[in-house]
């Protein structure tokens, strides 16, 4: 998979993604290309279409129009092959409540095609990577929010994919856990394509090499975190990322489109 494809070819390629739910136009023509080595912070207010976009990239939702390719495989044409290429942490990090962490990860290993020793090794490594040793025999429903999130991360990392799609990976973690997960993402980012959504803008500065802001279903900013910060009004000195975010997402779509043409997009 990853090793067979051209290193420069985008791992994730989304073209003109649109999603309508009845009369609600949730995503309006999103284009996204993510090459290996990029950690993309996907930002936007609640309801802007972040999760919907991630769900279309992972094949959970079918786009109303547009296409998605993962490591060159079109997800509409060969969904099963495309789904092998990525690890995905869905919003809220769902897992089976009655299963223990170990059982759950063993199921994921089986679903990813590993068996016997290989499967055991994968589970062990995933547990080690996100420090789940202490709760490995606990039922998922009895875990704290932080451990649930980490189990979700372990699940996404288990098959060592070239693409990681993480919907709010640090939500519900305490500051120490957030730090650990950020370090992990930075470490993983080296040769993977990572898309993570978050509401924490300092996180974007800390781990992301690229920031994409969406508002009302469309991209309003696409650039480096530094470029994003530069978009804050001049007079703002503190929390400049927050100010930039507010400037981009509180205007209406016309303003945002106008702002987009002014620069920042690459």
């Amino acid at each position: 998979m990853a090793s067979h494809t051209d290193r420069k070819a985008p791992r994730i390629e989304a073209v003109k993604l649109e999603k309508r739910f009845g009369h609600i136009h949730a995503v309006r023509g999103i284009d996204l290309e993510v090459p290996a080595g990029q950690v993309l912070g996907f930002l936007g207010p609640n309801g802007a279409g972040k999760s919907t976009t991630m769900r279309m990239i992972t094949g959970f939702l079918e786009p109303s129009s547009g296409r998605v390719k993962l490591e060159g495989i079109d997800i509409a044409e060969d969904p099963i092959a495309a789904k092998r290429t990525f690890g995905y942490l869905p919003e809220g990090a769902p897992a089976y409540p009655d299963m223990t962490v170990e059982e759950f990860l063993a199921f994921i290993a089986a679903a990813r095609g590993f068996s016997g020793r290989d499967a055991k090794d994968r589970v062990e490594r995933a547990i080690g990577r996100v420090n789940l040793q202490g709760v490995r025999r606990q039922a998922f429903e009895t875990l704290s929010k932080g451990y649930k999130r980490r189990t979700g991360l372990a699940q996404a990392l288990l098959h060592d994919p070239g693409i990681l799609i993480l919907d709010e990976p640090t939500d519900g973690l305490d500051p120490n856990q957030k730090f650990e997960v950020r370090e992990l993402i930075k470490e993983l980012g080296g040769d993977r394509a990572i898309v993570l959504s978050t509401h924490i803008l300092e996180e974007v500065e800390a781990v992301c090499t690229r920031a994409v802001v969406i508002n009302k279903g469309g991209i309003v900013f696409d650039g480096t975190p530094a470029e994003m910060e530069a978009r804050a009004p001049r007079d703002v000195t503190k929390n400049r990322m927050d100010a930039a975010f507010r400037a981009m997402t509180t205007g209406d779509v016309a303003d945002a489109a106008a702002a987009r043409t002014k620069g920042g997009r690459r």
Partner: peptide, 15 residues
Amino acid sequence: MSTTSAQPRSALALS
């Protein structure tokens, strides 16, 4: 948190 492994990437195909 351990370092990245040298094992092959991505999941295996199942029938």
